[in-house]
């Protein structure tokens, strides 16, 4: 550094700024990264193509068949048309129901996102739309409509409908656990055990989802199962210790001699309770707070 006097600090005054503030365009610069949707995956494209071929060609074949029948006899044509419409109508209704169930899950996601970004208006709209068809939430609707801010809305949800839904989900889990335990105790083969517990687990997921106002079909059940396994992992974490303890007790050689094969049933029953709680957490419109 030179030994000369350094450049002194200076202030150069300019014009009045009025009430203006410096704008760093901060908000625009920090907007969340929006990952463009990747479009349909290869598997989805395959599924769409195969479905289009199956449904399209079967619809075309049915149309041809109906017109042929009309050429044979009008009454035969009408009867064939009725059967075709009934069949395709039922399939269509099933598809619509499936999509509605998936969209209902999306609504839960949208509400969670609104809560996370602190968007009160959007969160309230989603909560009201979610609560309307749920009988357990109906009583809380007037209070939810009057909620003044986001913390109040969250508190009302937690104290009212969500507490009731959680309690009912736990009760369903206990019932499923008892049934699963009883079924494995009397089942003649271990492979049948797995089948029974698996079926009871799927039914449990659908029951808990129905509590939350959903009527999940195959796609929505699969989506729920995935969410229960991944998104609601915090619930599973709290269960890990209990599950390990149950396993440690029932797999103890001494106790094993006493309870015999029922030991595996106890582990399975414990898992059904965990599944009920994880599904309830996945369906919750507000993620469970970690205290």
């Amino acid at each position: 550094m030179s030994e000369t006097v350094p450049r002194p600090p200076r202030i150069i005054l300019e014009e009045e700024a009025g009430p203006a503030r410096l704008d760093h365009a901060w908000t625009e610069g920090t907007d969340p990264v929006v990952v463009p949707p990747a479009g349909f995956s290869t598997l989805s494209l395959l599924a769409i193509g195969i479905s289009a071929l199956i449904f399209g060609f079967s619809a075309l074949a049915a149309g041809n068949y109906v017109s042929e029948q009309f050429t044979r006899a009008p009454w035969l044509g009408w009867a064939t048309l009725l059967v075709a419409l009934g069949g395709f109508g039922t399939v269509g209704w099933a598809v619509v129901r499936e999509f509605r169930a998936v969209f209902r899950l999306r609504e839960v996601d949208a509400a969670r996102a609104a809560f996370a970004r602190g968007d009160f208006a959007s969160a309230k709209a989603h909560v009201l739309a979610w609560a309307t068809p749920i009988p357990l939430a109906a009583a809380a609707l007037p209070a939810l409509r009057e909620a003044p801010d986001l913390p109040a809305l969250r508190a009302l949800l937690e104290a009212g409908p969500l507490a009731a839904l959680d309690a009912d989900a736990r009760a369903l889990g206990r019932i499923a656990a008892m049934q699963g335990f009883a079924a494995t105790a009397i089942s003649p083969s271990p492979s049948l055990d797995a089948l029974v517990v698996g079926w009871r687990g799927l039914r449990l997921v659908r029951q808990v989802a129905a509590l939350h106002g959903m009527r999940p079909g195959i796609a929505a059940t699969a989506s729920l199962l995935r969410r229960a396994a991944f998104d609601a992992a915090t619930v599973a974490a709290t269960e890990v210790a209990t599950d390990t303890a149950v396993r440690a007790i029932v797999t103890n050689p001494l106790i094993g001699h006493v309870v015999g094969e029922a030991a595996t049933g106890a582990v399975a029953a414990r898992r059904l309770i965990t599944l009920a709680r994880a599904t309830a957490a996945a369906c919750r419109i507000v993620p469970r707070d970690i205290a």
């Binding site: 550094m1 350094p6 450049r7 002194p8 600090p9 200076r10 202030i11 150069i12 005054l13 300019e14 014009e15 009045e16 700024a17 009025g18 009430p19």
Partner: peptide, 13 residues
């Protein structure tokens, strides 16, 4: 005073 100002803080060693 609510005025725009350019400040040259001088040399920072």
């Amino acid at each position: 005073n609510g005025r725009w100002a350019t400040v040259d803080p001088g040399l920072v060693p």
